[in-house]
Design a protein around this nucleic acid. Structure first.
Lengths: 217, 217
DNA sequence: AATTGCATCGCCTTTTCTGGGTATGTCTCC
DNA sequence: GGAGACATACCCAGAAAAGGCGATGCAATT
């Protein structure tokens, strides 16, 4: 399991914050067996490097101009499957984590963790392992319930109901929607009632907020 | 103007990302006349330090748990007016910048700038100057027009109207708002009319969208 | 064959919202 | 002292929304 390596792990840092890169470089410069051999301020630069020289591990941020860290990870996994990716970011919400999981990165840690955890992560990953921080796991746990609730709410809307909800959000009245869809105003009203119940919205105001926060608009 | 200082500037770093703190500490450890003498992971910790020892410059992030960097800056300016504040953050949108301006920080730079700019900023500020990055200035320029448009819409609302708009967004009906504010339902209705006209919202739905997109909620 | 989900339509009631006025008192600013 | 902005209050009328209740037909699933 533990093969003895004489050559250090060669790491590239990808982050649009030069300051962050400089800091990490210094931090890791003192660590044996880890060597920062390249850096990039965005995904495009990173890919250029990867085409020109050997890299063992790519440490990448998520939010970057032009190409996100998630996209970068996907491309790396497609073009250079042997390269490991460690995502180091400050985002810890479910949406991002979900994307990271699908991008098949080997590791995920938050920027607000200590240096030691970073070193651990790199070490584990270079040893063909994975490293996911505890925060990620607990967020995944926390979001199982929320996810279910969201499904109960949004997904239970039928396509017709969704269609009408969108029209409501476009400031059409029930009568106008009825004309638009060539159905009776009564029907539209019935749909409205169902929508209100399914989304647990007490009022129209609540419904609009629901629609906006669930990105239906 | 340039008094010769023998003692280095004493700086505290406030950031909820331990990794960032570690990096900056290392980066600045090599710089003459700048000394990182304290660090804090949030505003509360930072204040504790300030009450216990002398600090010349506080470098703070914006988004932190419990107390934001803006709040921290305000408190510092109130309690320790002689302490300079340099805001170092990755946010560069107008809302944040606006808040920072009002918090009267001496400097503002983005995390995606190089180390040299950071050193420049600290040096200038310690010399009783200010340092605001170019990005901030251009964003301010860009947003003058937007601001004017916003004023036409939002700012024309009187404080009472704004108060009622917020209650509307909290899903209270006119009658409920009337009870809450100890005024007549008729009065609330009058305000509603004015709000609808001033915001150019044709319907309640439009009003809610206006409120959400103008961050009134 | 029966159940279930979905879309459709209908009526009645009550509340809420919207738009049109009018009006009074206060406060500030010129 | 007068003009203007603001908050307050009221009336009327119509439109819209929300809640309740029932009903039909169609399609897919079981």
């Amino acid at each position: 399991m533990n093969e003895i390596k004489n050559s250090p792990v060669e790491v590239m840092i990808v982050d649009d914050h030069q300051m962050f890169i400089d800091g990490i470089k210094l931090l890791l410069s003192k660590v044996k067996n880890i060597k920062i051999v390249a850096e990039a301020l965005n995904g495009k630069q990173a890919l250029e490097v990867l085409y020109s020289r050997k890299i063992d591990i790519v440490m990448t941020d998520i939010s970057m101009p032009e190409m996100s860290g998630v996209e970068l990870t996907r491309l790396i996994k497609k073009e250079f499957p042997q390269i490991k990716v460690l995502v180091v970011t400050m985002y810890n919400d479910y949406g991002i984590i979900n994307e990271i999981i699908h991008s098949e990165a080997e590791g995920y840690i938050l920027k607000n963790t200590g240096t030691q955890e970073l070193i651990n992560a790199i070490t584990k990953i270079s040893d063909n392992g994975t490293y996911y921080c505890n925060e990620m796991v607990s967020i995944l746990m926390d979001n199982i319930k929320i996810e279910n609730k969201q499904k109960e709410q949004t997904k239970n809307l039928t396509s017709r109901e969704l269609e009408i909800l969108k029209l409501i959000c476009q400031e059409y009245s029930s009568s106008e929607i009825a004309s638009k869809l060539f159905i009776s105003k009564f029907t539209v009203d019935t749909h409205r009632k169902h929508i209100l119940h399914k989304t647990n919205s007490g009022t129209l105001v609540g419904l609009i907020k629901f629609a906006i926060f669930n990105r239906l608009i």
